[in-house]
Design a protein around this nucleic acid. Sequence first.
RNA 1: GCCCGGGUGGCGGAAUUGGUAGACGCGCCGGACUCAAAAUCCGGUGGUGGUGACAUCGUGCGAGUUCGAGUCUCGCCCCGGGCACCA
Length: 887
Amino acid sequence: MARYNFRESEAKWQAIWAERRTFAAVTDPSRPKYYVLEMFPYPSGRLHVGHVRNYAIGDVIARYKRSTGFNVLHPMGWDAFGLPAENAAIAGHRHPADWTFENIRVMGDQLRLIGLAYDWDREIATCTPDYYRHEQKMFLDFLKAGLAYRKESMVNWDPVENTVLANEQVIEGRGWRSGALVEKRQLTQWFLRITEYADELLDDIATLDRWPERVRAMQSNWIGRSTGARMRFALKDRTDRLEVFTTRPDTIFGASFCALSAEHPLAQEAAAGDPALGEFIADCRRLGTSEEAIETAEKRGYDTGLRAVHPFDGRELPVYVANFVLMEYGTGAIFGCPAHDQRDLDFARKYGLAVRPVLWPTTARRLSDGEFAALPPESQALFDTGEGLAVIGSETLFHVANTAFVATDAADYTYDLGDLTDRPALPVAEAKDIAIAGLAARDSGEASIGYRLRDWGVSRQRYWGCPIPVIHCDGCGVVPVPESDLPVELPADVSFDRPGNPLDHHPTWKHVACPACGGPALRETDTFDTFVESSWYFARYCSPRAADAFDRADVDYWMPVDQYIGGIEHAVLHLLYSRFFMRALRQCGYLDVKEPFAALMTQGMVCHDTYAAPDGQWLYPEEVEPRDGGWVRISDGAPVIVGRTEKMSKSRKNVVGLEKVVETYGADTARLLLLSDSPPERDLEWTDAGIEGAWRYLNRVWRLVTEPAVPLPPPGGPLPGNIGEAATALRRKTHKTIAAVSEDLDAFRLNRAVARIRELTNLVGEMDGSGPGDAWALREALEATVLLLGPIAPHLCEELWQVLGGDTMVAETPWPMADPSLTVDDTVTVAVQVNGKLRATIDLPRDAEAADAERLALADVGVQRSLGGKAVRRVIVVPNRIVNVVV
RNA sequence: GCCCGGGUGGCGGAAUUGGUAGACGCGCCGGACUCAAAAUCCGGUGGUGGUGACAUCGUGCGAGUUCGAGUCUCGCCCCGGGCACCA
C-alpha cells in the first residue's frame, strides 16, 4: 500500500509555485480585489508550530478567495527594528543588522517550508533605508501639519543602562535587565498628536462591524471619552481660580472638598511655604508608580490651607493634595462629592469631611416629620448631620454610610437651587445639563470632554530604530532635515561596549551643519518607537518598490486590507496606531483611507503540555516519553511532572519545532491540525494524537484517490445515463459538501469546513463501486474533495489533482460549483414528537402537504403506542422538520 | 468594581430564523488481517434501567415564555480575558 511521499511532493510544488510566481499579485482595477494579511513577525529567531497558525489561517483564506475569482494580495515581510537585536548585539557581539537579516533568512525559509501562498516579490523589511526613508518623510509632513511636536514628559529611566524603558520593561519598579531601581525623569520627547483624532477614532469603531466585539470594546476603553464639565472655583483671598474636571456636574451640591494632584502647580506653590506638604508630595511621587500603592489603594491627603468657594452656595471648601488625583487626566484637580463617589467617600471618612447626599434612588422617599420622630435617636442624629436617611419602598432604611450612591439613569434630586429644586425621577443627563447651565450663568464653567487617551510618545533612546529626521541648532532651534537629504541612515559602525544609545556615542554621526544657518549642529539621536513602522507597512505592500511611499493607483486599488489576522495582544496599540496613521497620512495627502482593516480576526494561541524535571527545570517535549503509565526523561529515566497545558513558549520549553514536524509528517499535516482542531479564534491544543490523526486522514485521502474502488472514467466525461442509488447519494453529498464548505470558509469556520470534507471522505470510503454510475460519481466526489481541501493541504492536493488527470494546478483551478438541484433531497426525515418528546421519525417527500405529514405521523406505530389511545388535541406541522402531536 | 467572551460526552468541538442535542475528530472498548507488531479495515461508545424493542434523565444553577428551549426572557453561580484611584 503506497504512502504519500510528502517530502518529494512538498518540495516539488513549492519550487513550481516559486518558479511560476503563481501568487504574484498584479494591480488590475477590472477585477475584484481581496487583500488578506497576517500581522508580520518580528524576526526574533526561529518559528515553532505555535507561530504558524496565524499564517496557515490566512493562507486558507488567500487560496480560497483566489479560486473564487478574486485578485488576491497576500504579502509577507518583517517588523525588523527593535530591542532584541540590540540585546543580541550586546550579548553576542554581533551587529544588530547581521543578527536581524540572519533571522529573516531563517524564518523566511521556515515559512516557505509550509507552502504559504505569498507574493514574495513584495517582501519588505522595515529596517532597510528603502522602507524607513518614507517614514522620515511622513514625520516631516506630520511636523508641518502640527501632528508631531516636542514636549517634556516623565519617562522610566534606567540609571545603569542610561536609557528610557517602556512601561512593559519595568518589573516591580526595576529595570528588566539591569535590575536597577527605575527613576522617573523629565525628558524632552517627540509626540504624535493622536488625541487630535480621539473622537473620530472612537466614533468610527461603530463602522468596524467585522471586528471582534471585544477588540472594539478595548479600543473604546482605551480612548476613554467621558463627557462632563470644567468648572472653576474662586479661591479665598486669591485672585486666581481653581479649575476642575467632572463627569458629574449634577452632584455639585454634594461637594465638600477639592483635591489637587501632587504635580498640580497650586500644590507646588503651597508646598513652597509648607515643608510638611513638600514631604507629602515627594511621598506621593515615590509611591505613585509602585505596585504597593496601587495594591493597597489607600487614599491619602494633605490640607493645603487653601479654601475654594462653592460657585452656587458660597460655602468654603478645603483644598487638599490627594494621592489619587492624576495630573495627566482632566485638569489635575477635582471636587470631592463623598455621597455620590466611592473614592471621595473613602477619602472623606478618613479625613472627617462632610458627606452631603443630594440625590436619591427614585425608589427612596424622604421621611415625614412623624416618621422622623419615630426613628431612634442615633438615626435622627445621622439625618441631622446630613448623612442621609430615607426609606426605600416602605421598609428599608437608605443610609449613606460606606457605600456611595451613584445614580446612572435617573434620580430624585433634592437640593435647593432655584432651577433645580426637588425634582423627582429626573434623568441624570438632564440634571447635568441644568447644572452646566447654572455654571455658565455664573461664569463658573462649561461642558467639556475628557479622554483617557494621551498623545503617542515616539522617541526611544535606541540605536536599532528609524532615526528621527531633525537637527538641533543652537541658533535656529529644531530644524527638520531637508527632504533632499533623506534618508537619514543609521551608521553601521557603532559600538555597544558601553551603556546608553550608540548613536549618541558615535564620534561623527550626530555632528552636522545646520540646514538653516550652516553652523555646527547636532542630529537628533533618538529613534522612533517600532510601532511607527508597523503603522503603515500594510499600505506599503501595495507598491513596495515605489519611489514614493505609496503609488496612489496601487494603494487606492488594494486598500483597505479586507481581512487582517493576528493576535489579540495587539488589540489596542498596533491597531489604534494604524488607524491613527491612516488618518494622519490622509490629512497629509498620501492616500484616502480612514480604516486600514475592514475585517479583523484574532486567532487563539497554540498550547501544549508542559514537562518539568525533578529539579524543576522545564523539558522539551522531545526530551520526555511515556513509560509505565507515567512520564520520564529519556536521557536518565528520571520521573517527569506533566504540568498544565499552556501557550507554547520558549521559556517553558513546551514548543514543537517546525522543521521536526514538517520532516516527520509534512507541512500539510501540520496545517490540517492547526486549522481543524479548534475554531480559529479559540486556543488550540497541539498533541501527538492530533498530529497523528491529521496524518492518518491525509493518507486516507491519498489512498482513496490513488487506489479507487473502481477504475475512474477519464476526466470531463459526460454523466452516464444510468445512475444508481448509491451514486446518486454520493453525488448529493458531494454537492452539499461544496455548498457547505464554501459557506463555512466565508464565515471563517475552518474547523467545520474540514469536518464537512471528512464526512464526504467517509462516504467515498463506503462506496464499493459496484453500482451503475458509481465510477463517475466517485470521480466527481474525489475531484471535489481535492479542490475543497486544496487551500488547507495544498501540496497533497496538487499531487492528487495530477493523479486525477487535471491539466492545471489546483492553485489556478476555479472553486467547484454546487449544483443546486443536488443540494436538496427529494425526501426528508421528519421528527415526530408527542407533547414535545421525540417518538419517531418518518420519511416524507420534500415539501409534503401538512395534512399528509399529519396523517402519516399519526399512522406511525411508535407514535400510536406513545399516544396510548388518548385523544389528539392539536397537531403542529413544521414543513420538512417536525410534527408535534399534542394530547 | 466596570467591559467583553465562555460554561454542551472521558477530551477538542457541532447543532440554520426556537424544531431529531452530541456532526467531525481524538481517546477508549470489541473484532478482522498478521507468527507477531505496525499500518489498515469493520463494529460500538452521554448517564441510568432492561436480554430486548424500549423507557427515563441529560447542554453551569433556579424560574419563566412556548406545542417545542443548548438557542429567547428574568434572577443567580463559576471560568477566561481586558481595563481601572480616569473624577
